[in-house]
Amino acid sequence: MWKWLHPYANPEVSYHFTGKLIPWFSAISVILLVFGLGLALAFSPADYQQGESVRIFYLHVPAAMLSMGIYLGMAIAALTALVWQMKLAEASIAALAPIGATFTAIALLTGAAWGKPMWGTWWIWDARLTSELILLFLYLGVIALQNAFEDKSLAGKAASVLAIVGVVNLPIIHYSVEWWNTLHQGATVSKFEKPSMSTDMFIPFIVCFFGFSFLVARIFGERFRAEIIARNSMRPWVKTLVLEQEKTNGV
């Protein structure tokens, strides 16, 4: 049943397969982001309470959702790396952590820039904001561990353990607005009922969300390929690739 997956556990096959997908991810993300951010900035309506500041929402919420989604993906890769000793899973942890950290930083900064005019403060040590800040530190911890060891497989193991332990933070972030009293509002999109917003705001949001998701896929693809090469630099197929590339570039 899982036989079709096996070839993709081969680093060389994965490297070339990812390379084929990257231009598609790029094109889709550019189209969706131009369309989505255009709608978000110029065509979506102003909020009846928050005015034009609501346009920060189209960055803040996709970035926050992706910061958690990427972490979940990284933790699943970490589990795969530890249990099945899959080297490609270690490469994907290393590729995902900087992307997740970037989106967490975006979620935090856009949140602060939205909080100042709406709540009257850039920052408050409440549950949602603090747990999202901890998520940033978890990402930075994974990146630091990844670079702390000369031996890549030891580094991958250490980073995997931290990534898995950190998963406990995800439900805390998600439910923080229900469990504790907080300035942060409850969920508008990621809940089981219908999203509580009008269609002309939901459409730009969802287009932006998928646009950013494809951007993540594209950046992940590039970093994943680089990590595969770095981890397989002694293999003959990498040597051939390097020599071929030298020939086409004409040194």
């Binding site: 951010l37 900035l41 102003a46 005015g51 034009e52 500041s53 346009r55 920060i56 960055l59 803040h60 970035a63 975006i106 900064l109 856009t110 820039a113 939205w114 100042k116 005019p117």
Partner: peptide, 15 residues
Amino acid sequence: MGGYAFYVWLSYGFS
């Protein structure tokens, strides 16, 4: 941006 120019463009610029 309805008076919110600094906050909106700060968010988009930083991102």
